[in-house]
Write a protein that binds this DNA or RNA. Structure first.
Lengths: 182, 182
DNA sequence: CAGACTATGTAGCGCTCGCTACAAACCGGA
DNA sequence: TCCGGTTTGTAGCGAGCGCTACATAGTCTG
């Protein structure tokens, strides 16, 4: 195995890939190490302890999410809030995003429980998403800032309901609200 | 220690109390047993294995939630959607509800990850909450069913944003939507 | 009272956990 | 070339995990 350049920076992408596929809470050092072609011994050496590793990993994942949003910045803006909402919801429901969404709820749960590092990562990702959403608001929207926050609240509620098998509840609610059809 | 009447039914309330204070995912048999004044040996004896214990526990907790909602059914209904939303949000934000909310996000995360038993419990709780919310809608609401679903989506989004430190984002969004002044 | 079945205590199995002790390999500068 | 620091491998520690084997106490039925 190539032992070249074993640093936090080269390890984090492989660790992130493993965590996206297998979860964060249940991840232990030895499987993580194997996923990064190294040993638990070296993970502790480079990160100090597991808590720091998880914190760094969450920061790295938040960074990935941020750059993914930057890359997804559409050229042409939607013309209505409804269109804006539908577009971002569809993007979040894309199968490619599934591992990320599964991990996301784990981060929310960790944030609620107060596990070190989780809250910060979750906050960063939401802040980024909000900023991104503001840029995606219709150009002629009377209140882009407030509208983005409103849409984001609706969006997160929709995603949560979807996760627990109540996607229909959300879509019927959105239909009644006039924000989104279907 | 009183060894009287050691059954699933007498065990579950004590187990639920422990889980509400210490989390579900990280809970292991021996601390759970101590919280219920018994031994890990007996937990396995009565539930078969840990997975079944967790499933039963989630069912029990969903039941607790359901009866709590029944008890919280207000005598006089709100007169506007905004009032309805504010009232239920305030109730959900009550400090007494905190352990339950923390556990809730763990259930959502487990549901997203597909852990057996989580999805069913989450679904049951949301279904119950929706039914409850429908009864709390203003009497003259033009579309109580759709309105309840809309408010619920907004509510869940608000709660999630609150958990990750974005309560302001949600309240500003609600302000812009006209549903809640905050 | 005999026997069967249920309920419980004690002890421990094999495993994984995060982490560490110790030594060897490597590598740059004197 | 030797030397000191950085990086890595091997082995293992103590603890906790879910779960089981085995024996025993209690209880109910015939």
């Amino acid at each position: 195995m190539s032992k070249a350049n074993l640093t936090r920076e080269t390890l984090l992408p492989k660790l992130a890939a493993h965590v996206l596929n297998h979860g964060l809470g249940g991840a232990s050092l030895r499987p993580l190490a194997k996923a990064a072609d190294t040993s638990d011994r070296m993970l502790i050496y480079h990160f100090g302890n597991k808590e720091q590793l998880v914190a760094d990993l969450l920061g790295h994942i938040a960074g990935i999410y941020s750059t993914a949003l930057d890359a997804a910045m559409g050229a042409e803006r939607p013309t209505t809030r409804k269109e804006c909402f539908d577009r971002i919801l569809e993007q979040g429901s894309h199968p490619m995003m599934r591992p990320f969404m599964v991990l996301w709820w784990e981060i929310v749960a960790g944030s609620a429980r107060g596990i070190p590092g989780y809250r910060e990562a979750a906050d960063a990702m939401m802040t980024k998403q909000l900023a991104w959403l503001e840029t995606q608001m219709p150009e002629d929207d009377p209140d882009p800032a407030g509208g983005a926050r409103y849409l984001m609240t609706l969006l997160e509620g929709t995603l949560m309901l979807g996760v627990v098998g109540h996607a229909r509840t959300a879509s019927e609610g959105l239909l009644a609200s006039g924000v989104s059809p279907s």
